[in-house]
């Protein structure tokens, strides 16, 4: 129970301090610390990242979601080909999917050209890869539960009984 709620809070705010966690969850700091440490070791907690809206920076960045059809290999299934793909630094996520294609590969690059080059030269040429469909992200509205645009102001009457 404490784990579930701890994760619920951390997922939204990884910078929250152990002391604050202890207050809002009503648990001692020791318990919070040891639970976090254990979950880090068990790879339940895989990192404490920052959510960035790159569109608001001066950096050029494009994201593509590439649907990849592959031929699974004997004894290895999809894992071996998945690995050959996810080891590329350009690739930020790889998921095995149900549905009309097999792997969802998310690639980040500086320009569309760069991503296209990666698909053409690196991804599509892999032997078990049977086909790719590259979809560029045009606009992010919501990512990981976070709205990209600021929400409306608090419209409640400031004092009500």
């Amino acid at each position: 129970m404490i784990r579930e709620e701890l994760l619920e809070v951390l997922e939204k705010d990884s910078r929250i301090t152990v002391q604050e966690l202890s207050v809002i969850l009503g648990e001692s700091e020791e318990v919070i610390e040891s639970e976090m440490k254990e979950m880090e070791q068990e790879k339940i907690i895989c990192g404490y990242h920052t959510m960035i809206n790159w569109d608001k920076t001066n950096q050029e960045r494009v994201t593509a979601m590439i649907e990849v059809k592959v031929i699974p290999q004997r004894d290895e299934g999809f894992d071996k080909i998945a690995r050959r793909i996810y080891e590329f630094e350009e690739v930020s996520s790889v998921f095995l999917m149900s549905g009309p294609f097999d792997l969802m590969v998310i690639v980040e690059g500086k320009t569309m050209k760069e991503v296209a080059l990666f698909v053409r030269e690196r991804l599509a040429v892999l032997e078990p890869v049977n086909g790719t469909a590259t979809c560029f992200v045009l606009k992010k509205y919501k990512d990981n539960g976070i709205f990209m645009e600021p929400r409306k102001k608090d419209e409640r009457i400031p004092v009500s009984l």
Partner: peptide
Amino acid sequence: IRRFFDIAAEMEDVISLGVGEPD
């Protein structure tokens, strides 16, 4: 609360912890 509310509503940069409805 009326009088108090009127003052609060007219001031700028007020942070209210005065509401009786969910956020």
